[in-house]
């Protein structure tokens, strides 16, 4: 589903990604962990083409992100096509980023109505079902500031799912939450994984990674240092840097 080969990204003189190689199969759940500033968020944003990569190849579902290849030449995609591609990838942010001037339901229906131009009669029932699925059927008409952090993040997940994405990206979805609210969000994500959604999750929730992920990836200094089956990965990391990092957070 996602294929990264030697992905490089720099901000000015700071080289944040220095050759990321990673493959994510359909229906796979991959958890990315790593120290702050290691480029995890940047990598997720590249997958969604919120950032342009400088070198390497990055493709989603077999199509290059942001470019079209013809012969051995790359052509930049026009905005409209980039937007269409983005609409097929769901993204959930650390700080929720719900639209504060819209109710939970309005947040969820906005993109299907405006981007996909699907009819209201179809979108609204689906949005209600989604909100129900994340356990918020009684909060449909609440504004984001009337919701707890955990509830907001669940609305944000429903909002992303409403676009019927083929891939979901989560950028530390629980790290802005109080500890007792983390569980409700992880439960929703676990349910998604069980339904076969392809997911790339940046997280420090080791328990979630161990139970739900098919693979754990350790990223540091802009490269993938080590990856493996989660249980083995956490039990016996191979690299010194991984060991050091895990010993600090476990």
């Amino acid at each position: 589903m996602v294929k990264a080969e030697g992905v490089h990204k720099r901000f000015g003189r700071l080289e944040v990604l220095r050759g990321i190689d990673l493959e994510v199969a359909p229906r796979e759940v991959v958890c990315i962990i790593g120290p702050s500033g290691g480029g995890k968020s940047t990598f997720l944003r590249c997958i969604n083409h919120l950032e342009k990569i400088d070198a390497g190849r990055l493709s989603v579902d077999g199509e290059l992100v942001g470019y079209r290849q013809q012969g051995d030449k790359l052509y930049e995609l026009p905005d409209s096509e980039v937007c269409t591609k983005r609409s097929e990838i769901g993204m959930v942010f650390q700080r929720f980023n719900l639209f504060p001037h819209m109710t939970a339901l309005e947040n969820v229906v906005e993109a299907p109505l405006r981007v996909k131009r699907q009819p209201k009669a179809e979108v609204i029932p689906r949005a209600r079902t989604l909100l129900e699925r994340v356990g918020l059927s009684d909060k449909i008409d609440a504004y984001p500031n009337q919701l707890s952090g955990g509830q907001q993040q669940r609305v944000a997940i429903a909002r992303a799912l409403a676009m019927q994405p083929k891939l979901m990206l989560f950028d530390e979805p629980t790290s802005a939450l109080d500890p007792e609210l983390v569980g409700e969000v992880l439960d929703v994500m676990r349910g998604l994984a069980e339904d076969g959604m392809t997911m790339v999750v940046v997280t420090h929730e080791m328990g979630f990674a161990r139970e739900v992920a098919n693979r754990a990836v350790f990223m540091d200094g802009g490269v993938v240092v080590e990856e493996g089956e989660p249980r083995a990965f956490f039990a016996s990391p191979q690299h010194a840097r991984t060991k050091q990092f895990l010993s600090k957070i476990l």
Binding site: N48, L50, D79, S80, C83, T84, K85, R86, S87, E88, I89, G90, M91, F93, N97, L98, F99, E110, A111, R114, V115, K116, A156, R159, A160, M163
Partner: peptide, 10 residues
């Protein structure tokens, strides 16, 4: 960012 991630145009 959130709106663009949903595929909305500028």
């Amino acid at each position: 960012e959130a709106a663009m991630a949903l595929g909305m145009r500028r």
